[in-house]
Design a protein around this nucleic acid. Sequence first.
DNA 1: CTAGTAACAGTGAACCACGC
DNA 2: GCGTGGTTCACTGTTACTAG
Length: 264
Amino acid sequence: MDPHRQGDLTEAIVIAELKRRDIPVSVPFGDNERYDLLAEDDSGGIWKLQVKTGRYRDGKVLFNGKSQHTNASGHTYQEYDGDVDYFVIHCDEVGGLYLVPESEVGSQMSLRVADATQDHRTINWADDYDFDERWPPEPATTGWRDAVIADLRERGIDVLGARGGDAPYDVVVRDADETLYRTSIRPGSVSGGRVRFDTGSTHAPGRDDVDLVLVRCRDTEETYLIERDAYDESISLRVEPTRNDDKRTHRAADYTLDRRWPPA
DNA sequence: CTAGTAACAGTGAACCACGC
DNA sequence: GCGTGGTTCACTGTTACTAG
């Protein structure tokens, strides 16, 4: 089956599955929206869902977390980066329906259905993302950006106001030496033992745009400070300790606001 | 230290629909 | 006819982890 029809089929199956669970679902008019469906939870919350077809391979359900389109310069790839709240993955081969937060998905993700030869920490077990276990989603954390700003002020750090217009940073902060730092504040979450945040999207700040990135992780309830020069395209902070102390590993504990402020 | 395993990131291709 | 848009499929290389 050609990919477009496959996508339509999966979307139809997901709509049927949601209806079967008495979940109100709406389909956006036209195909100009980045999400496929809108679903309503019991409390009236509206969630933007992106439907994906899962491919079963080597005991895992694989799916892509980005959309691809073609222009004059060739293929371009775009992550959803907040344009959707959740991915709903249906895999025909295993008959599974999974709900995965957008923030936990990179360019692609695999959900392990079959037992693995080795019990790997980074395995994303499909059962953990079972739709019926995950629905309804937890209400979105509101005011996390304000929480970070409050965190900064609590430490006596000067916050010189929020951005205006299309500036790539959220606030400017000032240290005791009167040095100013353009700072981007991003939401993060723990996945696969790592704190992840959106570093590679079209909306993410580049090295020339900001000096610092503050990541508020909802799972660890910690704020991490990362100097923008510390990474190129992306960085992930490992929450759980590793047995082999690899030099390339970035430990989240080393990047907490308390340990990193003021910037070197 | 090494081999094996798993996840991630990136790239190219195929297919169909649509507009110019 | 050609270029573009949107989707999945398939493959390769890199990174990081586990086990021996």
